[in-house]
Nucleic acid binder design. Structure first.
Length: 207
DNA sequence: ACTTCGATGCTCT
DNA sequence: GAGCATCGAAGTA
């Protein structure tokens, strides 16, 4: 088993970091219980101030400050009242982050279903807020903790996924910045969120 | 206190 | 794939 990624790993370009994190594992430890684990099958990068989709930089000064924490810290962006799990990137004072958008559960599935009961199992964690609920994460507790915290940490993929397995598209649910290919999903993975991107740069081998 | 908006989720066609 | 419920956060007053 690989070691948890240290905070220093995130002191760089969030686009590159998101790409390389695809296929990694998110581990949520529960005292006295089996850890909840899942493969990260969908990520997005946000990178103020050059990013037109990054509302933190454009007109939410206060939220920008929440996001411009030192790299390698957990943070939550809220949209429509839902918490979205992110890791701060680049350097302190810069609002840049990687957003974890979907998870393929591998361990503790029944426990996750307890946190977030769903009729169809595939709907358990195929969205950024869904996975937060499925893991039973409390933003008040997690925010500001290092990304290699025992409570919640990341394991990198054994090896970076080959390009053929990586689907690159526009990000989901944004107005500006739809031209930027900053969403990464594992091609054909059934746990990817059902949302349809406005742009898909993927070149299919079959044409 | 009130208004607006959205990095969402859910429930229908 | 379209429409709506929803609610936390910012901005304005």
């Amino acid at each position: 088993m690989t070691a948890p990624l240290p905070p220093a790993h995130f002191a760089g370009n969030p686009v590159r970091i998101a790409r390389d994190l695809l296929g990694g594992t998110l581990v949520r430890s529960l005292p006295g219980h089996e850890s909840l684990m899942g493969i990260i099958v969908e990520l997005e990068a946000y990178d103020c101030p050059r990013d037109p989709a990054c509302t933190a930089g454009r007109f939410h000064a206060a939220r920008s400050a929440d996001m411009a924490v030192p790299p390698g810290q957990w943070l939550f962006w809220t949209a429509h009242g839902h918490p979205l799990l992110q890791v701060a990137c680049r350097e302190e004072g810069v609002a840049a982050s990687v957003l974890i958008r979907a998870l393929q559960p591998t361990h503790g599935l029944s426990h996750m279903l307890n946190f977030r009961p769903v009729t169809r199992e595939r709907d358990l964690s195929n969205g950024p807020a869904k996975l937060v609920y499925a893991l039973g994460l409390d933003p008040a507790r997690i925010t500001g903790q290092p990304v290699n915290s025992p409570e919640l940490h990341l394991l990198p993929p054994a090896a970076p996924l080959p390009d053929e397995q990586v689907q690159v598209t526009a990000r989901i649910g944004i107005r500006e910045g739809r031209n930027l290919p900053w969403r990464f999903t594992i091609r054909g993975n059934p746990w990817v969120s059902p949302a349809t991107p406005s742009m898909d740069l993927t070149v299919n081998a079959e044409g």
